[in-house]
Amino acid sequence: MRFDVITLFPELFAPFFTSGINRRAFESGLVEVKLWNPRDFADGNYRRVDDRPFGGGPGMVMMAEPLWRCLQALRADRNEADEARAPVVLFSPIGERLDHAGVSRWADSAGAVLVCGRYEGIDQRFIDACVDRQISLGDFVLSGGEVAAMALLDAVARLLPGVLGDEGSHQQDSFNPALDGLLDSPHHTRPEIWQGPAGPMAVPEVLLGGHHERIARYRREQSLALTARLRPDLLEQARAQGRIGAADDAFLRQSKKL
């Protein structure tokens, strides 16, 4: 799997590739990432990559030509057949919202070219001619696409076999099909009683008993309750898919009465 990242700030990625558990994916080559700076393909002594927008307005716009030359260079480096070309992805507020299903599809892919915009954006002509998909992290605006690119790479890497210490770790993540797309339940660790700012706080007794079926049911109910309170849309989606059983419904009905 290979991702090529077009960015004006490749130095931002250095600590990302060498820190945390996901570094295994990048250091081993399981996820190959190459960084490309469009400034290296710009003209003039100043290697200019942006200019004022036609029609006026604040800010600067990234120019199409340096991006195009950069894309051509990385295409030559990838040496792909036309029918197997990696898609070009732009991180943009107007893009489709990235979710677990989308991350899973990228984890099963051969990779992509990730374009990180800056300033007021990118010349629309480059987008129209070269971009295949646009992705958004949510309804907010970042200073550039680098953080979004790292988010996608991080989410993809942790789904790959051999990256996490426990192969089943990601299957208990929120939104995972193994949890029927619900939110994950709360977690606890030692000590059994924590002397917190509001006084002693104990770990739920059911988690200390070693009864696996009761623990599994408790966690399921906590997941249901949390999802019903914070993300009822996910609960309704799971219900529509037939993932909410009779015991789940009984618990939810009882919870509403409490």
Rank of each mutant, 00 (worst) to 15 (best):
R24Y: 00
Q134D: 03
L179I: 07
R220T: 05
D128N: 10
L208M: 08
Y218E: 04
R190E: 07
L164S: 00
I21S: 01
I122G: 09
E83T: 12
T189R: 07
G29T: 07
L252H: 06
P53G: 01
G55P: 06
G209W: 10
M201Y: 08
R253T: 13
Q222W: 12
G95V: 00
S92M: 01
P186W: 10
L152V: 13
G111Q: 03
Y46K: 12
L30G: 13
A149G: 11
E83D: 15
K34V: 14
P191W: 13
A149F: 02
A112R: 07
Q241N: 07
L252A: 06
Y119H: 03
V31K: 10
W194R: 12
A107P: 08
G245I: 03
N22I: 15
A73L: 06
D180V: 04
E83I: 06
A155F: 01
S185I: 02
R52T: 15
A155Y: 09
G102N: 09
G56M: 03
V33G: 04
P38R: 14
E221R: 15
Q195E: 15
V49A: 08
L258D: 14
P186E: 02
S255P: 06
Q171D: 10
H188W: 15
L74F: 11
K257F: 11
P204W: 03
E32G: 13
L235T: 03
D248P: 00
L8E: 10
M201E: 14
P161D: 01
L98G: 02
R231M: 02
G20C: 05
D4L: 01
I127H: 00
S104R: 12
D173N: 11
F251V: 01
L258I: 11
G95I: 07
D173L: 08
A101C: 03
T7F: 06
L30W: 11
V31M: 11
V89S: 00
L179A: 14
G199R: 06
P87C: 00
P177V: 08
A84F: 10
H211R: 12
Q124M: 03
F54V: 15
E221N: 15
L74A: 04
R133Y: 11
S143P: 15
